[in-house]
Computed example of a mutant assay.
Amino acid sequence: MTESTIADADIDQNAQPKHSFLSRLYTGTGAFDVVGRRRFYYLLTGVIVLICLLSIVFRGFTLGIDFEGGSKIQLPAAGASTERVEEVYAQTLGEDPVSVQTVGSGSSETIQIRSVALDADQTNRLTNALFAEFQPKDRDGKANPNEISTSDVSETWGGQITRKALIALAVFLVLVTVYIAVRFERDMAIAALSALFFDMAVTAGVYSIVGFEVTPATVIGMLTILGFSLYDSVVVFDKVEENTRGVLHLKKKTYAEQANLAINQTLMRSINTTLIGVLPVIGLMVIAVWLLGVGTLKDLALVQLVGMIVGAYSSIFFATPLLVSIKERWGPVAGHTKKVLARRDTLESKGSAKEPAEIVASGSGVASSTTTTLRKAAPADTPRPGSRPTGKRHKKRR
């Protein structure tokens, strides 16, 4: 075997130039095996959902005054502390408040008391006790009882708000279900709705874990992020539909490989869309909540931040792999996948060159592997391409 023959033979994949992570991310050539590792992502998704559901069941939610009803008292935080406010409340009314927390920052920082519904006499006694203890001052520096504000929300009003929020959420889900059923095929609709419910469960679980109050702004934010999640799933599924069109007539590619290629081709777009959406939300949390002290915006900001991140994750690492699993469980795609993988096994057993494939689908009882094109070394007496025939072969031709 000559040196040139050796150089042409046995080219291993490791000898090829390797591209960086960012290069593979931007080119979207199918280098990230998402579908092939879907069992890992199923396990990760299940762990996340389990943690969130356990928090919802055992920890529950901190419902805002708009949902539960009750009284809310606010006073300037200057010269006061949450511990001392709780003591004054307990000494005056003989019971503990629902919650006492600091809202805002700087000169606009206030202490907010949430309690069960108080009658007029209880409200007056509590206001007088707070004024006598802390002497809140107005802008002129004079002690002013009007700096202590009170507001009441009846349980009936809270029940109406809760009912309207649930109706709005139900109507949204019905409209989304109809749209997905019309826009996509059955299996895509099942995967998209599963991802949507995953987003809802995780976002609600994070609210339960953090302990933020659930307010009408939270419900609005929930509807917003569900729309974002649906948009991201539609983008990925559009590419999957484009790549898998006519895949049953191919002998070298499976549905899973084409779906994985679609994920890679839309991965950078999903990341960019999520970053563009998250940056304003982070700005809202930093500027409005932390610097300006507008505490009412933190509920909307948190639900949007969590929802966008979770929505991007579910559309890439859950919805599309779930679609492939459904397709490969039954129907023509399952049969086609078995034929393609069986053909590769046959070619391998015969010692022929394997078909190059970006990713071979795992699952369906078939082992997964990344295949490369194998070039076998030529026999020692085989002439190099382009060389003139010599010796016995030359004489036979003559």
Rank of each mutant, 00 (worst) to 15 (best):
G365N: 06
M200C: 15
V234Y: 02
P76K: 07
K18W: 06
N146K: 14
A377M: 10
V289P: 01
V49M: 14
P389V: 11
V47E: 09
T382G: 00
G70E: 04
I51P: 01
I309L: 12
D33P: 00
G227D: 05
A168F: 07
K142E: 13
K298N: 14
I271K: 07
I6W: 07
R384K: 14
G311N: 00
T372I: 08
V182F: 15
A312D: 04
E355R: 10
G60D: 07
P145H: 00
V206K: 01
A380L: 00
P76Q: 07
I167M: 12
Q304N: 11
Q16N: 05
T150L: 08
G79A: 06
A361W: 02
T102M: 08
I167G: 04
S4E: 13
I111G: 03
Q304V: 10
S194D: 05
G60A: 02
T218H: 04
P216H: 06
D12S: 13
L341M: 13
L275V: 15
H19D: 10
L297M: 12
L322S: 01
E86A: 11
M222I: 15
Y26S: 11
V57A: 12
G64T: 00
S229D: 02
L93M: 09
F212S: 09
T370A: 10
V182L: 14
G94W: 05
Y313G: 03
G221M: 05
L44N: 06
V171A: 10
R125C: 00
V281R: 03
E87R: 11
Q13N: 11
K251Q: 14
V219Q: 02
D10Q: 10
T371Q: 12
V178S: 06
G386K: 07
L50A: 14
R269G: 01
I113T: 06
S387F: 09
G158Y: 07
A378Y: 01
E109K: 10
N144K: 04
Y89C: 01
G69V: 08
L226W: 03
S151G: 06
V303Q: 04
S364G: 08
W157V: 15
W157R: 10
S368W: 09
G351W: 06
D238A: 09
M308N: 01
K18E: 11
D232M: 09
M222P: 00
A192Y: 06
K252M: 08
R388C: 01
A367S: 12
K339T: 13
W157E: 04
V366A: 08
T390V: 12
L175F: 12
A319Y: 02
A117G: 04
D345C: 02
D121M: 09
D121V: 14
P383M: 08
I180E: 02
A288N: 10
S194F: 14
P321F: 03
A168E: 04
T2C: 01
T5P: 00
L53S: 11
A361C: 09
W330Q: 12
A361D: 14
T5R: 12
N243G: 02
I65H: 01
K253N: 11
M268E: 03
E133N: 04
Y231E: 11
I287E: 02
T102A: 13
F228T: 05
N146Y: 07
Y207G: 09
